[in-house]
Computed example of a mutant assay.
Amino acid sequence: MFSRRQDAQRQPTARKAAQRLEEEFGLALLDRLGRRVAVTTAGESVHRMALAWRRGV
């Protein structure tokens, strides 16, 4: 497991990656609700497509 400090260091990188994907797709992939984050329907679709691509389907 990661310590809280390690996890906090990874968050900006993950946030930037998510923002780049949102810009590239032109879709909101995550709903940011204060400190909480929820995956949107579009985000779920992109995730399923990425998993299929990874499996080579």
Rank of each mutant, 00 (worst) to 15 (best):
R55Y: 04
E24K: 11
E44N: 07
G26F: 03
E23P: 00
D7M: 10
E24I: 07
F25Y: 13
G43W: 08
T13K: 13
L27Y: 13
R32Q: 06
E44D: 10
K16W: 05
A14S: 00
V37D: 04
A42S: 13
A14D: 00
V57Y: 10
F2Y: 14
T40S: 10
H47A: 15
T41A: 03
T40L: 05
G43H: 08
A18E: 05
A52Y: 03
A38I: 05
R36T: 13
R10C: 11
A8C: 00
A18R: 08
R4D: 11
S3Y: 01
V37C: 03
E24D: 15
M49N: 01
L30V: 12
P12T: 01
L33W: 02
E23Q: 14
R10P: 00
R20V: 12
R15C: 03
F2M: 14
K16D: 15
V46F: 01
L51C: 07
R15L: 09
A28P: 02
G56T: 10
T40P: 02
T13F: 08
D7H: 02
L21C: 10
L33G: 01
R36H: 14
L29I: 04
R54L: 12
E44V: 15
A50P: 00
A17G: 05
R4P: 09
M49D: 06
G26Y: 05
V37Y: 03
G26L: 02
R36E: 13
G43V: 07
A52F: 06
R55N: 10
T13C: 01
L27E: 15
R4L: 12
L33D: 14
T40F: 03
A18K: 01
L21H: 09
F2L: 15
L29Q: 05
A50D: 00
